[in-house]
Design a protein around this nucleic acid. Structure first.
Lengths: 283, 283
DNA sequence: ACGTATAGATGAGTTTAAATCATCTATACT
DNA sequence: AGTATAGATGATTTAAACTCATCTATACGT
C-alpha cells in the first residue's frame, strides 16, 4: 500500500471537522499526529490537500474530492462495523411469550452473570425476525424443524399449584387447563396419549382452553387448579415450589423448540446463548 | 478506534480472494500477518468472520456482511486515491494545436528532464477540458481572461525563412501569411497597428490566410515566404535559426494565453508545470 | 498597537503496533 | 502412506505511529 489508511482516517476527520485539533480529539490523538499524517499524505500523493492560512486551514479542490470519497467510504465501513460489534456483544432473542415469560426472562440475570461481556435482549410477538442477528426460538412440530436445529423435544404432564391435594382421577370430575394454539396448523397437546400412559382413560375430565400455555399455568397457580402443559415451561416453577408434579408420568410429544438455521449464527454471543439455552432447557 | 483499519484491509482482501495466502501476496505481506490481523479482528468484534475447515476457509454470514461493506468502502476510497495520485505525478495539458506543436511538444523533453518525477501529457482539440486535473491553456482576448490567469501577453511581428533576403516593403507587392481564427469572436491579428508602428502604411501587401498560425509559419518556412504572427510561437524557431526576424518592431496585441482559474490547481505537478510554462513563454 | 493565547509545523525521541521468523497442525493431492 | 500446502501460534524484530519540546504565525482582547 502506498498510503497509510490511518493517515487517510486522520485526513477524513480533519477535513470533516475543519481543524487538526478537533480531528485529534475525535481520534484520541495529538494535533501533532494529525499534522504529521496529513503532510505525509500530501508528500506521498504530491498534492496539497489543505490551504494553510497561518493557523487557519481550508480544503483545496483536490482535498475536497478526496474528503468526499474517504468520508463516504469510511462511513459505509463504520456503520456495518458497529452493527457487527453490537451483534458480538449482545444476544438478541425473539420467541413465544410463554417461553420468554417462564424461562428466558427469569433466567436472564443468570445468563448475564455468567457472561458479563454479553447482554441479552428478549422480544416476543410478531417482530421482524428476519432482521439480521436476531435469534428466533420457535415452537412447532418436529417435522418442520431440521434435527440439528432442535434445542428441546417437548414432553407434557399435569401440574398443580404447590401444596394442593393430589386429585383422585377416578372418583370425581376434574377440570384441566390446556392449550389450543392460536396457530391452527399445530396439533393439540397429547392429552389422550398422556391419559393412556397413566392408565386414566376412564377419567371424567373437563377441559378449559387458553391460547397460550402461559395462561393455563398462571390460572392453575391462581385458583389451585390443574394444568396439562409442557414440562419445559414448568421445570423452574416446580423447582422453586410454585408448582408441583403428582405421581403421573410425562408423555413425549411431537412438539419441540427449535432455532431455524441454528448453525448459521456465528457470533460468539449467539453461540454462547445457544449453548446456554440448550443446557437450561435440558437441565 | 476500536479496530485497526489495516486489519480491515487484510480482511477485505482475504474475503475477496478467498485465501490468506493470496491476500498476503496482494498486500505484500506474509500469510502470518493476515492470520494475525483477522484473528485480532475476530476477537475484538467477538465474531467469527471465517469458517476454518483445516486449510480451507470460507466466510461466515457475518463475514460476508462485513466483507461487502469493506470492499465497497475501500474501493470508493482507492479509486479516488488513484486518480489523485495520477494528478500528482502527471501534468495533463490541453491547448491549441499551434502552441502544442510549436512550443509544448518541442520543450516536453526538457520539462521532463527538469522534473523527472512528473510526466507531461499534451492533448489538443475539443477534448473534455472540464475533466478534472486537466490544465487548459487558452488563447483569447485579454478582456475575457482574469489578470491573474494570464501567462503570456501576445505580441506580433513579421518573420521569414532563415537566410532569405529582407523584403523591400516600399518597392514591390508583398505576400504575407496571416491568420483568420476559426473562432469568429476573436479579432483579426493587429496588422494595421504593426504597419503603422513600422511606418509601412503605404506598402502593397497581399494577405493569405490560414485558420491556425501554425500553418502560416510552416508555409513561410516551406516557400521562403513571410508570415505575420505571434512572437510566442516563433521565439524557439528564431533561436534555432529556422526563422528570422527583420528590422521591424513587434507590436502588442489584445491577445493572450491564459489558464482559467490558474490558482485552483493545487497539485504539485500542475504548480510546477505552470511555473515552467510561464518561464518558457516569457524567456 | 501590543501582548497573549491558540493552531499548526517541525524535528527528535519514544512507544506501540505490525510484520516476520520458526515451529506446529491439519488437510489435500499424488 | 508420504509430501506439499494453508493456516495457527508464540516469540522476536522492525517500522510505523505517536508524543514531547520547540518554534512560527495569526487571531483576539484590552
Amino acid at each position: 500500500m502506498q498510503v497509510s489508511l490511518q493517515a487517510l482516517k486522520a485526513f477524513e476527520s480533519a477535513a470533516r471537522r475543519g481543524s487538526f485539533k478537533l480531528a485529534a480529539e475525535e481520534l484520541s490523538l495529538t494535533p501533532t499526529a494529525i499534522s504529521h499524517h496529513i503532510s505525509n499524505l500530501e508528500s506521498r500523493l504530491n498534492v496539497n490537500l489543505f490551504h494553510r492560512q497561518g493557523r487557519r486551514i481550508s480544503l483545496t479542490g483536490t482535498g475536497k474530492r478526496l474528503a468526499k470519497a474517504t468520508s463516504e467510504g469510511f462511513r459505509k465501513i463504520d456503520s456495518v462495523l458497529e452493527e457487527v460489534m453490537k451483534a458480538g456483544t449482545a444476544a438478541r432473542v425473539t420467541t413465544t411469550s410463554s417461553l420468554a415469560a417462564m424461562v428466558l426472562i427469569p433466567a436472564q440475570h443468570e445468563f448475564e452473570q455468567a457472561n458479563p461481556d454479553i447482554s441479552m435482549e428478549i422480544s416476543t410477538g410478531e417482530s421482524v425476525d428476519s432482521q439480521s442477528y436476531i435469534i428466533p426460538i420457535r415452537f412447532g412440530d418436529v417435522s418442520v424443524a431440521k434435527d440439528s436445529d432442535v434445542i428441546r423435544y417437548e414432553s407434557f404432564n399435569v401440574f398443580g399449584a404447590y401444596g394442593m391435594t393430589p386429585p383422585s382421577w377416578s372418583n370425581e370430575p376434574i377440570t384441566l387447563f390446556t392449550t389450543e394454539w392460536k396457530n391452527k396448523s399445530l396439533p393439540d397437546p397429547p392429552l389422550a396419549a398422556w391419559l393412556e400412559t397413566n392408565g386414566l382413560e376412564g377419567a371424567d375430565i373437563k377441559l378449559k382452553k387458553f391460547d397460550q400455555e402461559l395462561f393455563g399455568i398462571q390460572q392453575a397457580m391462581a385458583e389451585n387448579g390443574l394444568v396439562f402443559c409442557s414440562t419445559t415451561l414448568t421445570t423452574r416453577l416446580v423447582k422453586s415450589n410454585l408448582l408441583q408434579q403428582f405421581e403421573t408420568r410425562p408423555v413425549k410429544s411431537d412438539f419441540c423448540y427449535y432455532v431455524p438455521n441454528k448453525d448459521s449464527f456465528e457470533t460468539r454471543s449467539a453461540d454462547r446463548f445457544l449453548n446456554w439455552i440448550e443446557d437450561i432447557l435440558n437441565q
